[in-house]
């Protein structure tokens, strides 16, 4: 087990970062917030981590600070986003991400410009990295149950209805957005503190594509979705190496097909298969005579 973990360190690291990115998008999405800001916060988390680790900070402190920075930054811009819905929100958050990308290129003293940051201490132990992912998955799972889970689910389907049921729409969505941003920044922290490098290539438009891919391949709303998606997106390229240059095209076609024809993702497919298998064994509902008088 330990050997396997050590041998597959790069793969695990990839999967962890992908999963965190996927969960960041999901956290906002399931509360009905179309946010593309994840990669922007990923960039903020990454660059802050790189600078602080270079300045000799302890990684635990850096991690805590990065999450807080993500949270606070999200709360600062949320008044603007709160006024927007649906496509406007998607566009504004994507504009935010594109702006951060452009800023990363031009603000060279903080970000290293086009070359990016390199030679950062790789301080995060593998165990801690896995623990971070597990904790995030647990939080997502727990908040998908109970009162909070029902409230977010209602928000996603119909804001007006949710409001009439006593859900504080703007507060819930702001919190969802803040959580999403915190996890996004955390993904940046994990990426930098395990690879030691971070640059404009890490936060390009293709990262936006990847984070959405992770989400839709696994399943956009189900809690296990991003984890399944991350494992698939992380390992698939290893098997597609034979296809060479075509692997990117194959990947894109697969994703497109899933989005159009199977919007619930792989977890959705598995659930569907289970429901087919279970059908013959399910107890048939009894005849309606059960409660009726005998004669």
């Amino acid at each position: 087990m330990i050997d396997w973990l050590a041998a597959n360190a790069p793969l695990l690291r990839n999967i962890s970062v992908l999963a965190l990115l996927g969960y960041s998008v999901q956290l906002a999405l399931r509360a009905g917030v179309f946010s593309f800001a994840t990669v922007g916060f990923y960039a903020i988390g990454g660059y802050v981590t790189a600078n602080l680790l270079k300045a000799g900070w302890n990684w635990v402190a850096v991690m805590a600070l990065v999450i807080v920075v993500g949270f606070v930054f999200a709360l600062v811009i949320s008044p603007v986003l709160n006024r927007l819905r649906h496509l406007f929100l998607a566009m504004a958050t994507l504009a935010f991400t594109l702006f951060i990308q452009s800023l990363a290129l031009s603000w060279a003293t903080f970000t290293g410009g086009a070359q990016g940051m390199f030679g950062v201490r790789r301080v995060l132990p593998q165990g801690a990295m896995i623990a971070i992912v597990v904790v995030v998955v647990l939080i997502v799972w727990l908040t998908q149950r109970g009162v909070l889970g029902r409230a977010t689910s209602a928000l996603r389907h119909d804001e007006l209805l949710a409001a009439s049921l006593g859900v504080n729409v703007s507060r819930q969505q702001t919190m969802a957005f803040a959580a999403s941003s915190g996890v996004g920044a955390l993904a940046g922290f994990v990426q930098v503190s395990t690879t030691g490098v971070f640059g404009p290539d890490d936060i390009s438009f293709s990262t936006v594509v990847t984070s959405l891919t992770v989400l839709v391949v696994g399943g956009a709303i189900i809690w296990a979705g991003p984890l399944v998606g991350a494992i698939l997106v992380g390992t698939l390229p290893l098997y597609l190496v034979k296809a060479g240059n075509l692997s990117l095209i194959i990947q894109a076609v697969v994703v497109l097909a899933i989005v159009v024809y199977q919007p619930e993702g792989l977890v959705g497919i598995v659930k569907y298969l289970f429901s087919i298998i279970r059908k013959p064994f399910r107890k048939k509902p009894r005849e309606t005579t059960a409660g009726a008088p005998a004669s």
């Binding site: 179309f34 496509l87 998607a90 438009f205 293709s206 936006v208 594509v209 959405l212 891919t213 839709v216 990117l248 095209i249 894109a252 076609v253 994703v255 497109l256 989005v259 159009v260």
Partner: peptide, 11 residues
């Protein structure tokens, strides 16, 4: 639809 356009763009 938005996500599908992102996928199309990557293709």
């Amino acid at each position: 639809t938005v996500i599908a356009t992102v996928a199309t763009s990557s293709l």
